[in-house]
């Protein structure tokens, strides 16, 4: 394995839980933050990191997660604006070198890329895959 990273994952929905568990299995140190205790409790046994039940948009909570030491922060709640706020706090206040945010609305994407947040837009990614699949199948038929 390569160097172990310190990763903070915000949001323990399907995406956050999956990413956090995979990273944990790969041997990285992972802290996952979510407002809801039941979501944190549902994490698989393969997750060996820390769980914090709190609101990650509060600076204190990221402090508690030792964000100043993190290599990566992934904001993956189901709310675009929460993700963008957490990602920016991580970047500007805690100087986390690599911050990523899930943002559903493609119209919000470009501006936050410019502000140094790596924006992952599932809507755009899915659209591209659909189009790609259509193009491939139509070329196959041709």
């Amino acid at each position: 394995m390569t160097v172990a990273l310190y990763v903070i994952v915000v949001g323990c929905g399907r995406l956050g839980a999956l990413v956090a568990t995979r990273l944990s299995q790969e041997g990285h140190s992972v802290v996952i933050i979510d407002l809801t205790e039941t979501k944190l409790a549902k994490l698989s046994a393969d997750f060996s990191g820390y769980r914090i039940q709190n609101d990650a948009t509060e600076v204190e909570v990221l402090q508690q997660a030792k964000a100043e030491r993190a290599d990566i922060l992934i904001a993956a709640t189901n709310n675009d604006n929460v993700n963008l706020m957490v990602a920016q706090i991580a970047k500007v206040i805690f100087h986390v070198p690599h911050v990523m945010a899930r943002v559903f609305n493609p119209a919000r994407e470009a501006i936050y890329q410019e502000l140094g947040i790596q924006v992952i837009c599932p809507t755009k990614l899915s659209a591209e895959r659909f189009l790609q699949a259509i193009h491939t199948s139509t070329t196959d038929q041709a």
């Binding site: 948009t57 709310n79 675009d80 604006n81 963008l84 706020m85 919000r108 501006i111 502000l115």
Partner: peptide, 13 residues
């Protein structure tokens, strides 16, 4: 708060 932040940032940026 997060909605107010994003609204202001979009308006500005």
């Amino acid at each position: 708060d997060h909605d107010n932040l994003i609204a202001c940032q979009l308006a500005k940026e």
